[in-house]
Simulated assay, not measured.
Amino acid sequence: MADYKYMMNADDVARELNCSKSHAYKLVRRMNVELAQQGYLTMAGKIPRAYWAKKMYGYELSAG
């Protein structure tokens, strides 16, 4: 579990979706706004991998 990255950046999103980096940045920004509206602290340019999985694939990652 040492190599597990909790946060994703725009490069990770672009690679996952096979899209441009600029589009990936837009998605990350949008998800950070959604998280902030829900009361979560956010980091510019990064989103939690678990939130990504829930938004994009409809499932939740378990901690394990």
Rank of each mutant, 00 (worst) to 15 (best):
K46S: 02
A24C: 07
V13F: 10
P48L: 10
Y57M: 07
D3I: 06
W52D: 02
L27G: 04
V13P: 06
Y4Q: 12
M56G: 01
S62L: 03
G58Y: 01
P48F: 04
N32H: 08
D3G: 08
Y59R: 09
V28G: 05
M31V: 02
V13N: 08
K26A: 09
N18G: 09
D12C: 13
I47M: 04
Y25C: 09
R15C: 10
R30I: 01
E60R: 15
N9A: 08
W52Q: 04
N18C: 08
T42P: 00
N9E: 10
T42S: 00
Y57K: 13
K55T: 01
R49M: 06
A36R: 09
M7I: 12
L27C: 07
R49P: 03
G39H: 02
M31H: 06
G58Q: 02
L61T: 03
P48I: 01
T42F: 01
V28Y: 12
A2I: 12
E34Q: 05
D12P: 09
G39I: 00
M1Q: 13
I47T: 06
A14S: 15
A36Y: 04
N9M: 09
K54E: 00
M31W: 14
N32P: 10
N18W: 03
P48D: 05
E16K: 13
G39E: 00
A44M: 07
A44W: 05
K26Q: 14
R30D: 02
E60G: 07
M31A: 08
Q37A: 05
C19N: 10
P48K: 08
N9F: 11
K54H: 01
T42D: 01
D11Y: 14
P48N: 06
M56Y: 03
Q38H: 12
E16F: 12
M7Y: 15
A2M: 08
G58I: 00
N18E: 10
E34A: 11
A2N: 11
A63K: 07
C19R: 14
M8W: 15
Y59L: 02
K55N: 02
Y4W: 13
L61V: 05
K21C: 00
Q38C: 11
Y51F: 10
E60I: 04
K46G: 00
G45Q: 05
K5H: 11
Y25A: 05
V28E: 12
A14R: 15
Y51C: 04
Q37G: 09
L35I: 03
R30M: 04
R49K: 15
K55D: 01
Y57A: 09
E60F: 05
K21P: 00
C19G: 09
L35Y: 04
L61C: 07
V33K: 12
V33S: 09
G45W: 02
A44N: 11
N18Q: 13
Y51V: 07
V28P: 07
S22G: 01
V28M: 11
R29Y: 12
M31T: 00
N32Q: 11
Q37M: 11
R15I: 05
K5W: 03
T42M: 01
S20C: 10
D11F: 14
A36K: 13
S22H: 06
I47D: 07
D11R: 14
A36G: 03
E16H: 12
K46Y: 07
Y6F: 15
N9R: 15
L17R: 15
M8L: 15
Y57D: 10
